Amino acid sequence: ERVRARYDYEAQNEDELSFKKGDIITVLEKDDGWWKGRNGKEGLFPSNYVEELE
């Protein structure tokens, strides 16, 4: 599954994923509120910062 970033997100910890608004992220795992994904790097990000691609 792929999602698009709705906002910029700056990683707060080294296991998190940074991205810019409009970036496409491949979702690897979904957990409550935090998803694991890849966009060149791999890490956790808040699920409310992304939207599913149509």
Rank of each mutant, 00 (worst) to 15 (best):
E51P: 02
Q12D: 07
R4T: 07
K30E: 04
L44G: 07
N13F: 07
S47A: 14
R38F: 15
L17F: 04
G43T: 02
R2N: 09
V50F: 05
E10H: 11
E10M: 12
R38T: 11
G40M: 09
I24T: 05
G37H: 01
D23M: 07
K41I: 08
W35P: 00
G40I: 12
L28Y: 08
R6G: 05
K21A: 13
N39F: 15
N13K: 13
D8R: 01
E14L: 09
R4I: 12
R6C: 13
L17I: 13
L17M: 09
Y7G: 06
E1Y: 15
E1F: 15
L28H: 03
A11E: 05
W35V: 03
V50D: 01
I25F: 08
L28M: 12
Y7K: 11
K41T: 11
G40H: 12
K30D: 03
G22D: 06
V3R: 07
K36H: 07
S18H: 04
K41A: 10
A5C: 08
D8H: 06
D8T: 08
W34M: 12
Y7A: 12
D8A: 09
P46W: 07
E14D: 13
S47E: 08
I25V: 05
D23A: 07
D8Y: 04
W35E: 00
I24F: 09
E16D: 04
T26V: 14
R2V: 12
E10A: 11
P46R: 07
E10W: 11
R6I: 15
K36A: 05
R4A: 06
F45T: 03
S47L: 07
D8E: 06
N13P: 00
L53K: 05
I24K: 03
W34G: 04
V3L: 06
L53P: 06
E51A: 06
Y9P: 00
W35Y: 08
I25T: 01
L44R: 14
Y49R: 07
A5H: 01
A11T: 04
E52R: 13
A11W: 03
I25K: 02
E1M: 15
D23K: 03
K30T: 06
F45P: 01
Y9I: 02
E51F: 06
I25N: 04
E14F: 09
L53E: 08
E16L: 03
W34I: 07
V27C: 04
R4F: 05
D32I: 10
E51N: 05
S18V: 02
E42V: 15
L53M: 13
N48A: 14
R38Q: 09
Y49A: 13
N39M: 15
D32H: 11
G37W: 00
K21N: 05
G43W: 00
V27W: 02
G40E: 11
Y7D: 08
L17A: 03
I25Q: 02
N39R: 12
E10L: 12
V27M: 04
